[in-house]
């Protein structure tokens, strides 16, 4: 464990908590893409299948349980509990264009042709593009609530910090995983536009508005 990975996990956890609280407290999922949350639930499910078979540490197991539980709770709130507030008309990104290519790619490019490894690889590829429906929805509605932009910032920063974690691990542990690094780079690049708007607007107290 190193500081970058720890801060990354904290940032990821806080993004998940921010979103859960926003929906629960405001009893509304307006402006939130249910499709992205569905993709995240798939990402965690396919990545943490070894949750019960491969104990690494209490921290690792407990974080995995929290991630999986909270992603399902978020999907449940969007599609069931508060579905009346779900803005389906603006959440129109075709997720099959994300799931199919990443699934095919995980069969072609992986470290080991075994079910667990292919599912892990699929989850890494899918995570790198899972935020697209949400970013697409924000660009369609032309703006996002401030709390939603904080959620997106925390979520984007988590993988950016993981990039530094991989530099650290390459330097000091002679470890690197090219699949995770390339997917992490793609994931971070997708946020760049949003990072720019967040830093130039939201941090100055303005509302986040994307050129529609």
């Amino acid at each position: 464990m190193n500081i970058f990975r720890f801060l990354g996990d904290i940032s990821h956890l806080s993004a998940i908590i921010i979103l859960l609280l926003k929906i629960w407290k405001s009893r509304s999922c307006a402006g939130i893409s249910g499709k992205s949350q569905l993709l995240f639930a798939i990402v965690f499910t396919t990545r943490y299948l070894d949750l019960f078979t491969n104990f690494i540490s209490f921290y690792n197991t407990s974080m995995k349980v929290v991630y999986v539980a909270s992603s399902y709770a978020t999907v449940w709130m969007i599609y069931s509990k508060f579905k009346a507030t779900y803005d389906g008309n603006h959440d129109t990104f075709r997720v099959e264009f994300l799931i199919v290519p990443t699934a095919i790619l995980s069969f072609l490019v992986n470290h080991d042709f075994t079910p667990l490894e292919i599912l892990w690889t699929f989850s890494i590829y899918l995570e790198s593009v899972a935020i697209l429906p949400q970013l697409f929805m924000v660009s369609k509605t032309g703006e996002a609530e401030t709390i939603t932009s904080h959620y997106l910032f925390a979520l984007g920063i988590y993988r950016t910090l993981y990039l530094f974690n991989w530099i650290w691990r390459y330097q000091f542990e002679e470890f690197f995983d090219l699949i995770a690094i390339v997917a992490g780079l793609v994931q971070t690049v997708l946020y760049c536009d949003f990072f720019y708007l967040y830093i130039t607007k939201v941090l100055k107290g303005k509302k986040l508005s994307l050129p529609a």
Binding site: D50, N54, I56, N60, H111, D112, N165, F176, D177
Partner: peptide, 10 residues
């Protein structure tokens, strides 16, 4: 091998 270490990440 190397790759197994990676699986300690979330």
């Amino acid at each position: 091998e190397l790759d197994d270490i990676g699986k300690d990440e979330l």
